[in-house]
Design a protein around this nucleic acid. Sequence first.
DNA 1: GCAACGCTTCGATCATGATCGAAATGTTCA
DNA 2: TGAACATTTCGATCATGATCGAAGCGTTGC
Lengths: 229, 229
Amino acid sequence: MQTIAPELAELAALIADPGRAGILSRLMDGRAQAASELARVAGVTPQTASWHLARLVERALLKVERRGPRRLYRLATPLVAQMLEGMMTVAAIDPQPSRPLPWIDAEMRRARTCYDHLAGELGVAVTDAMREHGHLHLDQEAGELTASGRAFLRDLGIDLRSPARSRRLLCRPCLDWSERRPHLAGRAGAAVADLALQRDWIRRRPQGRSVEITAAGLVAFRDLFGARI
Amino acid sequence: MQTIAPELAELAALIADPGRAGILSRLMDGRAQAASELARVAGVTPQTASWHLARLVERALLKVERRGPRRLYRLATPLVAQMLEGMMTVAAIDPQPSRPLPWIDAEMRRARTCYDHLAGELGVAVTDAMREHGHLHLDQEAGELTASGRAFLRDLGIDLRSPARSRRLLCRPCLDWSERRPHLAGRAGAAVADLALQRDWIRRRPQGRSVEITAAGLVAFRDLFGARI
DNA sequence: GCAACGCTTCGATCATGATCGAAATGTTCA
DNA sequence: TGAACATTTCGATCATGATCGAAGCGTTGC
């Protein structure tokens, strides 16, 4: 039975090193980072990080662009982010009753971006609020934006039309590994996160992929979305 | 930045061994298999397979049930299957221009089950046909069953109502790693696969997770679904 | 109870790959 | 052109874990 198992193992081996896992995790916000920053989060020397990065690029998990004397690395495709989402979900479950759950950084748990959409308590609260207001149907597997939801996002100034065809799919669930419940992803989720950044409801923290909810953001998420946050 | 990276690496390390990857791949059809069968597909001795299986169970990727003198292993949750789907998708891409694509077993490419739904050429053909008949909207991220699609499945004898609430989500895409295009998954996909097995349109092959399309199945998929297969 | 069978545990061996110091490469700016 | 800086390459060392033979355990059936 010739199958894909060898490639699967090879891919997994690439993620199996704590340094490389840290690098990939750091890049899950979709932005590009310099090699030195990635060496820092991986907790290794620059030369070791360079070795790791070369392997990740070679296997096309990352792509690199030169910006002056530094090299910026980012996830090669959204597919890689989606794969990592799925792995983190399983990694966070680990329902070994005896073993205590890993303590997760409070800022990460509170609010972060997951590639292009909101995650953490914030992401789940916004999703729950939209669901309660009838803007959204969502379960672990699938999601659907209602007419009410389309109108709601339109009123917020989000244009969901795109150069694609008229009938479009906007909404998918993404299982939040820290909250263990689904939050809004897909085009609609990305649009909400974009809006929040543009209106300064959230700000990216200089390091890590957690975000800070501004005072204006707290008001907006509560009043506009009805989120309990 | 305390994050989930160490757990991610640990999880990946578990999949990074070719033997364990083969075992997990073999179990992707959702059924339980005996340790000896899994040793065979992994290409290792029974004692080595036992060691691998113990690690996978300990980390809750698999669960085991004793059936007489033998032990049957299966994926612990659908979440594990979904994670492996995502990894296989990335593993199959590997767009290194120089390296030739792995040759994929013809039977696997033709038709197989992906946990609970159809995959391979068959899965994609059925999905495409449903899409062309307006039963389905599907892109890489999200999916939606139309009213026409609900009626179509109802006429086939598929009852999509479940003990859950009335407005339900049935449909998600699953990126087919051999065809590199999305096929139908979620509750609707599982229902179609169930139907095909019940009506003997497909038969599970004794070993491996590829399935055989019967003569009746070929007719059914072509005439009932309009699939080009 | 005993034999047959499936599976697991133990112990020793062996290979792979992660690491960092040192040095080289490449880019920018003066 | 030369200095400063980011990153990569090279080489040697070291730790982890995959493997299988041999032996042990547990279940079934006679």
